[in-house]
Design a binder for these strands. Sequence first.
DNA 1: CTGAAAGCGCTTACAG
DNA 2: CTGAAAGCGCTTACAG
Lengths: 330, 330
Amino acid sequence: MAKAVTALDVAREAGVSQATVSYVINDHPSHKIAPETRARVLEAVARLGYTPSAAARALRKGSTDIALLILPDVPTGPAVAFLLERLTDELELAGLVLVTRRVRQTTERTAPWRELRPAVVVPIVSSLAPELEVELRSAGIPVVGSLLEHPSPDDGTSLGQILAGRYQVEHLAATGHLRLGYADPADERVRAFVRLRLEGVRLACMELGLDEPVVLPVPLEVEKAAEAVARWRSLPEPVTAVCAYNDETAFAVLAGMHRLGLEAPDDLAVIGVDDIPLAPLASPPLTTVDQGLDALTLNLAQRIVGAVRGTPSPPRLRSDTVRLVLRRSA
Amino acid sequence: MAKAVTALDVAREAGVSQATVSYVINDHPSHKIAPETRARVLEAVARLGYTPSAAARALRKGSTDIALLILPDVPTGPAVAFLLERLTDELELAGLVLVTRRVRQTTERTAPWRELRPAVVVPIVSSLAPELEVELRSAGIPVVGSLLEHPSPDDGTSLGQILAGRYQVEHLAATGHLRLGYADPADERVRAFVRLRLEGVRLACMELGLDEPVVLPVPLEVEKAAEAVARWRSLPEPVTAVCAYNDETAFAVLAGMHRLGLEAPDDLAVIGVDDIPLAPLASPPLTTVDQGLDALTLNLAQRIVGAVRGTPSPPRLRSDTVRLVLRRSA
DNA sequence: CTGAAAGCGCTTACAG
DNA sequence: CTGAAAGCGCTTACAG
């Protein structure tokens, strides 16, 4: 249980005071340290392998380098995994550590920032309850609206989510389809997203004069998916194309079709959302809507860093990242 | 910038000392607090919404509740995403927060534990350099060998990794295949894993008297995959079955086959590793090897918690979680 | 059963 | 240009 190296150890080693160590380490603006002293300190730091304790620093400064990401209890699909990976990397570059908290519902009772004193809170899906938002603001902790935020309709990303649905419909309508199905993943935990994307589909159908989409549950099981496909095709006015909630659900639809000996897009056109790495490998290659998660994540990272450092940051990305990825399934 | 609520605020509110607040909050064993006092304190805590500062606590106790996961710079595929998700949840249940650090190479220069003072360090892939291992031990920070640790050959998981390859071959050999191909994802960043799984394949081939597997790069692109498939089939002694590095690579092989009008398993049998959610939805449904990541992750979580709390924990899971998932592609 | 006080390792006015 | 000292918010021997 050797004690860790402290600034005092370094100070002794370099023959200076603890304060001086701190000044050179932090490049304190109002404290120009003599180059020679500086060098001596830096050398001692290197020799001893000193790194300031994050805890002591946090206690003293009143805040940490933590970016607290509040994730809902959704399964971590490819999209969220990608986001997490990129965000971790980008924030680490800026000296922030990403801490993720999965939370069913963010309430008074689960207010992790009280414990962690993060530099910033990022509620990745639902926005915070107003009273929590107030608590944070008054504690000086910025809240960065995430890209996936959901309820507010004029919000950029709800917009993005809705737009994904719209793009699906526009492409389908443009290729002559009049009756659309919607493949719902039937997973409680992503309900909010389903609602949003489906909303986009409904709206677009209305505007383009198509019928209401026929929503059917399509879990990731061949049999169930086949049932849904059979059902869509046996309607009085059969569905000729389906919008899937995401690419994984689209794979399920495709699998259900294969089971029935059907081929996309002729028997039924299928379009997904996300453009996961496997999408081009579907048979046929999956036509899908790319939400531009890459750009959105980068933008989110920049906004987080900006909020922490108090530096100007780019505006929240709007809908301009969404685009159709045309392949063969629709 | 309202100040956060401190133990002193609570103490005043409850009419006790700061020490007493701490005792009731921590249920200190040697300090039985009078029930009535206790109640008063608890009530004040609730009323004020008090949560102890993690930083102050860490500083005082000399260690944190952080479990530091050292991740190599590998792409976060479905398997790693799953592991991260489960681990976060399990550890949160035990009051630990998971902090992930992606690191190319863990050296003296990047020693995040010096800054973070985590309760435990988990190098998820490569084991730590010996001198770092020593540093941690002497600082009293336990290191929990991860499930994916790689170089030591007698190690449980290398074993697991090698075993995945072995299972692939055993199934293929049992179904009459003599000439095997190996689909290498051709991604530098997962080289270590490829080597291990391929090793298992090679060993098994030798023991079962099969030829050396024919290794070909198969990135996630239809064209490239088709090339590999064509190549395998046009060999003087054609390959009749291929072991894919993982399920995603197996999807690529399948896609390459479709492009050439070929069908698994008759034209070429294909077997993956991981059993990702999409595996049953491949066409044909993908036969694969499940590494039992679920059980492995739970075991890892238990070992982490055990190491931190100093309580007994289960032994590292060995190879017993690996199993064949028989579907239709092989 | 409860409290006063020390001290964890930093940073930062404040003096010199 | 450098240092002595206070103080961030806790926990925990030590007294009472």
